[in-house]
């Protein structure tokens, strides 16, 4: 015979401490989410409604006109072709920069772990140290270098610069990941007669998909969000989306159209945000991987 407890099931009592905890977390979440909310509602309002002055009020009349204008015909001071120009420029900058920087950094990491040579750790140390040097210190010499190479003011120059400045963090991430892989596989492949490139392609790459995903996320968001290198090295024709957004919002000409500005802001932020919301765990992993120096 089963002895069952009698009476109604006891209610779980939520401790007052828990309630306070959740309230605090919810308030913090509200604070962090509010700017995104304000961006969204402002971009859906007409200008007369915005001038009434409540930034938190939802739109009384939803309009998508600001979005269309931001994408297609917003003025940057010089011309009025909208953000789409910057969007495609950013794509043209980001895709090759991500590929080049990851290719080079993964090979660096591989050489640093499996094919050490005299001084390789020294170069790596300089690389890590260099990642902390403010860009302003190296900016002008790099202008001279790219000018001498004949690529200053072109897409090639920005891609080149992104590859250089992506190298420290990415090399670190790949080095740490490869170092944690079982070295027996590498030795077995060497015994089988595989060389430097053979092992890289046939042994290392197939095992390293997760870290490549982390690196791609890190680089796409980082390069998409760059402003300084775009404005210095890309040339007016190739300005990325961030530069164009800044020009649209901070142009001194004409009446300020806050709804168009906010639509343009969301459009610029959308690529990294979509990546972030889709890849959450990998994004966090990228932060953690980048923070473990040494």
């Amino acid at each position: 015979m089963l002895k069952e407890p009698k009476g109604p099931r006891p209610r779980k009592v939520i401790a007052p401490g828990r309630i306070m905890l959740y309230t605090a977390l919810a308030f913090a979440a509200l604070y962090y989410a509010l700017p995104l909310y304000v961006m969204l509602v402002t971009s859906l309002k007409g200008m007369p409604e915005i001038r009434m002055g409540n930034i938190f009020a939802p739109p009384m009349e939803v309009t998508f006109a600001p979005w269309i204008k931001a994408w297609d015909s917003a003025c940057t001071g010089l011309y009025c072709e909208g953000l789409k120009v910057g969007f495609w420029n950013s794509v043209k900058i980001t895709v090759p920069s991500v590929i080049a920087s990851i290719a080079i950094a993964s090979i660096n990491g591989y050489a640093l772990v499996n094919w050490r040579f005299k001084g390789s750790e020294v170069f790596f140390g300089i690389l890590i140290f260099g990642s902390f040097i403010p860009y302003q210190v190296m900016l002008y010499p790099l202008v001279i270098i790219t000018r001498e190479m004949g690529i200053f003011g072109s897409l090639w120059a920005v891609i080149f610069i992104h590859t250089i400045f992506g190298m420290p963090l990415l090399t670190l991430i790949f080095r740490n990941y490869f170092a944690a892989l079982p070295q027996e596989l590498f030795k077995a492949a060497r015994v089988d007669g595989s060389g430097f490139w053979g092992i890289y392609w046939k042994v290392l790459l197939p095992m390293s998909t997760p870290i490549f995903v982390v690196a791609v996320i890190l680089q796409v968001t980082g390069i998409w969000n760059d402003f300084l290198f775009g404005i210095v090295f890309a040339g007016v024709k190739n300005f990325p989306m961030t530069v164009q957004l800044n020009n649209i919002v901070n142009t001194t000409m004409g009446v300020k159209e806050y709804n168009v500005n906010m639509a343009a802001t969301i459009l610029t932020a959308s690529v990294p945000l979509v990546i972030y919301f889709l890849s959450g765990r990998y994004f966090v992993r990228g932060i953690a991987a980048g923070a473990v120096k040494g």
Binding site: A28, A29, Y32, P35, L36, V38, M39, T221, W224, N225, D226, F227, T242, V243, L245, N246, V249, N261, M262, T265, T268, A269, P272, L273, I275, Y276, F277, F283, V284, I287
Partner: peptide
């Protein structure tokens, strides 16, 4: 809490 970190400083500044 983390999403602002995914956005650029330009976007943050404009907002």
């Amino acid at each position: 809490y983390l999403y602002p970190y995914a956005m650029s400083f330009i976007v943050t500044g404009v907002v």
